[in-house]
Amino acid sequence: IADWKPEGRLTAKAIFLKWAGPPSQKTAVFAASRVGWLRDDLLGQLGFDASLFDDLLPDHKPSSAAERLAWHHLGVKDRECFYALLAAVRKAPPGLLEQTALETLAATQRRSTPVEPLFNRPLQQRGKLVRLEGTARRVERVDVTSPDIQQRFGIDHYYTIYLFTEDSQNYPLTICVPSLPDDLPLGEGAGYHEHVSAAGFFMKTWAFQPAGVLDPDSESAPWQLAPLIIGTDVRRYSPLHSLAGTNWLLVFPGLLLLLVFFVWLAVWWFNRQDARRRILPSEVSASPAIGPKSPENEPTAPEEADEA
């Protein structure tokens, strides 16, 4: 392990024990409960210890559905990682996470991170920076009552957003953020749907109980799995805003063909209507008289013509 060179920096809160080795090559020996890892990326720059992700792994492979579900619950094992991530994103200057995520997405000409890997390959996504757009159907405030968390991280509350994106197939993603914009109200239910975007770091798949469960302690209470993202830079936006990410190089030819078709259809229809209303002069002379004949136009009787 002495030759191991991680990408980033190692950190530790340690106690000095002694000097070891020969006088010419003395080595300081410290004792620490754990060694932290600041990755060489934005998350590391914000001071987050990526070794905390290891605490999210189960001690053994779950052998039953109940054990797998219990592993996804947020518990003591997730506590340090959760609040450390929340504290890290609070340090980020406003807009930094969103701008960095958009720069990464620019190569794919998208404005929102695909969510399929977050649902299906969560272990490979830990600490990944994502940007999501969609409809929030539930936004709530969560108060933190632990004096330890309040003292160490300076966090006494946060907000949870249950977001449905275009590609989440009506499954929610959960985003926990330290603050909300002033124009985004709290709420939930059938009448609540706010179009929002947010940027953050993927933490894990977690299990939660959807709204409407009357007895959370009931064994029959349903649980749902969702990606858990710790983020910031929440913005409320109009649905038309999503058109900004459209690949117009692909859409424009189709729109042009559609426009040409409608122009041709309009010209054809007006020409047909005009042809119905217009009668040519040759057609007038050849057309029989309509209605009773006037006296002056009546032909002379044959016998009167002979007498003349």
Rank of each mutant, 00 (worst) to 15 (best):
I1C: 12
E7R: 10
L10R: 07
T11N: 04
A12M: 02
A14S: 01
I15N: 12
I15K: 15
L17Q: 15
W19G: 07
G21N: 04
P22Q: 01
P23T: 11
K26G: 15
A28T: 09
A28H: 11
V29F: 08
A32W: 01
S33R: 14
V35G: 11
D40L: 11
D41W: 04
L42K: 00
F48G: 03
S51V: 07
F53W: 00
L57W: 05
L57D: 06
D59F: 07
H60D: 08
K61P: 06
S63L: 13
A66R: 12
R68Q: 14
L69D: 00
A88H: 11
P94V: 10
G95D: 08
T100W: 07
L102E: 13
L105K: 02
A107F: 03
T108P: 03
Q109A: 15
R110Y: 04
R111N: 07
R111Q: 12
V115M: 05
E116D: 05
L123A: 04
Q124L: 14
K128T: 13
L129E: 06
L132Y: 12
R138C: 09
H157M: 07
H157S: 09
T160R: 01
T165A: 09
I175C: 01
C176N: 06
S179M: 06
P185G: 00
L186A: 00
Y192N: 05
H195M: 03
A198R: 05
G200V: 03
F202R: 04
F202N: 08
A211L: 11
A211H: 02
D215G: 03
S220R: 13
P222H: 00
A226F: 06
L228E: 08
T232E: 03
S238R: 04
P239H: 02
H241A: 15
G245D: 08
G245Y: 06
T246H: 08
N247P: 02
L250C: 08
V251N: 05
G254R: 15
L255Q: 05
L256M: 14
L257T: 13
W264E: 14
A266Y: 14
Q273Y: 05
D274G: 12
R277P: 07
L280K: 07
S285G: 09
A286D: 11
A286V: 10
S287Y: 03
P292M: 13
P292C: 09
K293I: 12
P295R: 10
N297Y: 03
N297W: 07
P302C: 13
E303H: 11
D306H: 07
E307L: 14
A308I: 14
